[in-house]
Amino acid sequence: MDREFIAERQRGLQTYLDSITQHPLISTSLVVKKFLDPNNYSANYAEIALQQVSMFFRSDPKWEVLEPLRDMGWRIRKKYFLIKNKEQSKERFLLSWVDLGPDKFLSDKDLQSALKLLTNLSTPYLCPLVFSSTSESSALLIRPFSEKGSLRDQICKVKPRESHLKKYCNPKKSQGLELEQIKLYGRQLLEGLKLLHDGGLFFGHLHASNVIVDDDVCRLVDVENGILGVPSFLRPAFTQLRKINTTESIDVFCFGHLLYEMTYGRPPDSVPVNLFPSVPHSGVVSVLQSILSTEACKSGMPTVAALIQTPLFSDVHLKHSEKLQIKVRWGGGGGSEGFSASVRETVRSDWFFFSSRFPAD
């Protein structure tokens, strides 16, 4: 109980906690949050999710749970289940239950309309929603299950169904992609972002775990996250940068973060990035510098259209070369398919307002 020894121990414990909370994956884990803030993290979200999912299956008996996918994602208030349609026994689907986040700003009616819009989308670069349903506090979503996992699973060379922390906290075999893959995947991701932006929508949640690769085609997953009000994984990074002040600039910043991971096999330790390790393709580094360097973060992000025109991506041949678009009727039609222009502007402006002010969870 020597006073100096206790003070030294306190300093050591503080250093330990600081290092844990600075690690983006560990700091978001439920174990850490429960230890540091037990009052706000006492709810059993796995049990809540199970209750909600059980109620859904009673009302729609064609679906059957195959297994819960425990700790598959980083979000505390989001749980996953592998399910099947009894009428299509071979195909597997991913059911996700998520608590509505602090950034939710749409009314319940508009939220249902927005999700129905996303459920009806059919484009090559967006992973479709098969089913969506919302309650006062949560949403339930069904989409096809990818046996190969996400782009991050491919980079880290891990099995999709393992625990999120086990897969990504300290991967032993991760490595960057080949140049042709970087060019192809990067261009497809930019095309997916452009589709959303041209349709008046936004993403804000682009990272390697929200991309699946199917037959060499990248598809964006969890496009509905922003509408559901859940915070972005990279929000602690981009809210520190004053020049990131539009939803498009957020998506471009996230794209740069992902491009770095595709190149080097791991995400950057921090942003801005001023030292880019040598790689055999200088064109990648120039694009990374235009997004992640100190100068870029001070002067502002390039547009998605400008990135598509860079030498790295402009000559990429796409399978889906026809002009793609999201056909959205912004009001005038009424019913659940109508989605008014005022709601569209609320989606974009209010989401940015909230996402700049609330901490990630």
Rank of each mutant, 00 (worst) to 15 (best):
L126F: 04
L117D: 07
L201K: 04
V285C: 00
V130M: 11
F81P: 09
F339Q: 02
L95I: 06
F253R: 05
L115T: 07
D108F: 08
Q175N: 11
D18M: 07
S356D: 04
G331D: 05
S133N: 08
F238N: 05
V32W: 04
L50Q: 15
F354T: 05
N120V: 07
G204H: 06
S349A: 12
L30C: 05
K62D: 12
D18C: 05
P171H: 06
R77D: 14
S342G: 06
L324C: 08
I326Y: 01
R152H: 09
N44F: 02
V316A: 06
S59A: 14
I142R: 07
I244E: 05
G265C: 05
I291L: 05
F56H: 14
R11T: 12
L165W: 08
A305Q: 15
F145I: 05
G186W: 03
D99P: 04
K327E: 14
E147D: 13
Q10A: 12
W351S: 14
G199E: 02
L220M: 08
G256H: 04
S356P: 01
K172G: 00
S138N: 07
N44R: 15
G149D: 03
R77I: 05
F238C: 04
K173T: 11
P144A: 02
M1C: 10
E337M: 09
E87R: 12
K194D: 14
E261I: 00
V304A: 07
P124C: 07
P231D: 01
H197C: 09
I250T: 14
G204S: 11
R143V: 02
I182G: 03
F352D: 05
T239G: 02
D2A: 10
